[in-house]
């Protein structure tokens, strides 16, 4: 398994899609920062400590990162077929279930890393802007939010990754699906009932960005775990189909 994960990581070297993902993350930070220049009640948004870190992760999750993560995941799974390496892997032999598991683990790591990248960017900006106002507890809370966002969003988009692998069309479909999916989260978040269970907003409940009761958090966790199970079920079915 370690070797499979090592190989998956190695395969992403110089990958344009990964570079695009990193670029998109940086762009989100830039755009949110630009938005923070608007004045409200006499002061700029960015002037209040923590605003940047809070807004960046929420907007990133509604508009950009789930799509990007789903894209990278589908790309990792679809590429073996598109680049015709499947035969070579099959003849090593590599077990497909283990291969897919390795890919999903790498995707989880990627999802967390992308969120942590956003965390580092926003954190550095906050430090520059208002160093005095920051407390260690606050930083730690944000770190937790970003980290759990990363894990939660991975679980939320996992079924989309599996589904696109199933459809076997272009992995760009994953981008489209995940974009619609995460954008819908904006509307869902208006209902407190729906937002507990809708996977994208459930990630916020889990991470602590939304204030949520314990029951709501449990509901969200269950919803995300179900997402994970759904993805596993689709991938297992996919394996059965190819045999």
């Amino acid at each position: 398994m370690k070797i499979l994960i090592w190989a998956e990581r190695k395969k992403l070297r110089r990958s344009k899609i990964v570079l695009t993902a990193v670029f998109a993350t940086v762009m989100v930070a830039v755009i949110v920062f630009a938005q923070g220049q608007f004045v409200f009640n006499g002061s700029r948004y960015v002037d209040s400590a923590g605003w940047f870190m809070t807004t960046a992760q929420s907007l990133a999750t509604f508009y950009v990162l789930p799509a990007v993560i789903a894209l990278v995941g589908s790309y990792m799974i679809c590429r073996e077929e598109q680049e015709d390496t499947q035969k070579s892997l099959h003849m090593i032999p590599i077990d497909e279930t283990r291969l897919t598991t390795a890919k999903m683990i790498v995707l989880l790591a990627f999802s967390v890393l992308i969120y942590l990248l956003l965390f580092v960017i926003t954190f550095l900006c906050e430090v520059v802007l208002h160093f005095e106002a920051l407390t260690a507890a606050m930083i730690f809370t944000f770190f937790k939010v970003y980290l759990l966002d990363g894990i939660g969003v991975f679980l939320a988009v996992a079924p989309i990754v599996a589904l696109v692998a199933w459809i076997k069309k272009s992995y760009w479909l994953a981008l489209v699906f995940a974009e619609i999916y995460s954008f819908t989260g904006l509307f869902v978040s208006m209902s407190s009932m729906l937002k507990t269970f809708y996977p994208i907003t459930a990630a916020f409940n889990l991470s602590g960005y939304y204030e949520a009761s314990t029951t709501q958090i449990i509901g969200s966790v269950i919803s995300l775990i179900l997402c994970g199970c759904l993805a596993v079920a689709i991938l297992a079915g996919l394996k059965r189909r190819t045999h």
């Binding site: 190989a7 190695k10 110089r14 680049e83 015709d84 590599i94």
Partner: peptide
Amino acid sequence: TPGFYPNLTGTENLEIFAKL
């Protein structure tokens, strides 16, 4: 004609297969 990972060099490709 077998496929390989296009974003890697020939050596990197073979290293992956050798290790696997």
